[in-house]
């Protein structure tokens, strides 16, 4: 699978969960289930708001410290966009199962990698948001995320969107940014070696992907927009995925 492939999503794939979604993009495939609001365990119970519980399961093996870190990042971000104050003393549980991740042909594959895998974060975030939409959990905004790398190539800087594992390995810096649908910066995780100026470029690139204003008119304008696009339009994608699900559900009318 190439990195430039368009994202794909299906909503409501699991029959028993309150909401679920399957999402694949840039070689990653993630399935998420959302249950909630359900009764919280005593120790997780909060008097004023719902507890958001995120569980990340890797494609192989059991989760380790890296998954705990991903969970804590997702938990803090998602509890910002979910209206947690509406459901005091309850629990919203999000389980993210990684099904497929791209392999790096250049290195030995090792099962246990404690290092943070940046490229998987957008996929996890996007799947979680889709599953929350599918479960009908009230949210303040939706979120879109993307991963960007900066590589030094022949003396020039090259910005890559949706990097492959090989891109990440050769890149100088790796960045993950997520924006809410109000164009606010929700999450920014970067690693490597970069300057403020470079980060600004990354910010612009990521914002163009995550927060592109939807074309006002359908039809010609949209086709033109797609041609000069520098990357996938995540917000439009989220909208169309949810729209397709609603259309399918209301087909009987």
């Amino acid at each position: 699978m190439t990195a430039t492939s368009a994202p794909e999503a299906a909503l409501g794939v699991l029959p028993r969960a309150d909401g679920s979604a399957k999402y694949s993009h840039a070689g990653y495939t993630v399935t998420a289930s959302v249950n909630g609001p359900i009764e919280a365990q005593r120790r997780d119970e909060h008097a004023y708001e719902a507890h958001v519980d995120v569980i990340v399961r890797p494609a192989a093996g059991v989760g380790g410290t890296r998954e705990r870190h991903l969970e804590s990042i997702l938990q803090s971000s998602l509890s910002q966009i979910i209206l947690v104050k509406n459901f005091p003393r309850s629990l919203i549980q999000i389980v993210l199962q990684v099904e497929d991740s791209p392999e790096n042909d250049y290195v030995n594959t090792k099962l246990v990698q404690a290092s943070l895998n940046f490229a998987i974060m957008p996929a996890l975030m996007q799947t979680a948001v889709l599953a929350l939409l599918s479960a009908g959990v009230p949210m303040r905004a939706t979120a879109t995320a993307t991963a960007v790398t900066i590589a030094q190539q022949d003396g020039a800087k090259r910005i890559t969107v949706d990097p492959t594992p090989r891109d990440i390995e050769t890149a100088r810096s790796v960045h993950v940014l997520a924006f809410t649908s109000h164009d606010e910066l929700l999450l920014a995780e970067s690693e490597g070696d970069f300057t403020v100026k470079e980060w600004d470029d990354v910010y612009e690139t990521a914002k163009a992907i995550c927060c592109r204003s939807a074309p006002a008119k359908e039809g010609v304008a949209m086709v033109l927009d797609d041609e000069d696009a520098s990357g996938p339009d995540m917000r439009q994608f989220l909208r169309s995925a949810a729209g397709a699900k609603v259309a399918a559900d209301l087909h009987w009318k």
């Binding site: 920014a188 995780e189 690693e191 490597g192 970069f194 300057t195």
Partner: peptide, 13 residues
Amino acid sequence: ETRIKSMEKQGGT
């Protein structure tokens, strides 16, 4: 020169 090695911002807008 100031080089940024890592940046983590989460949990709010």
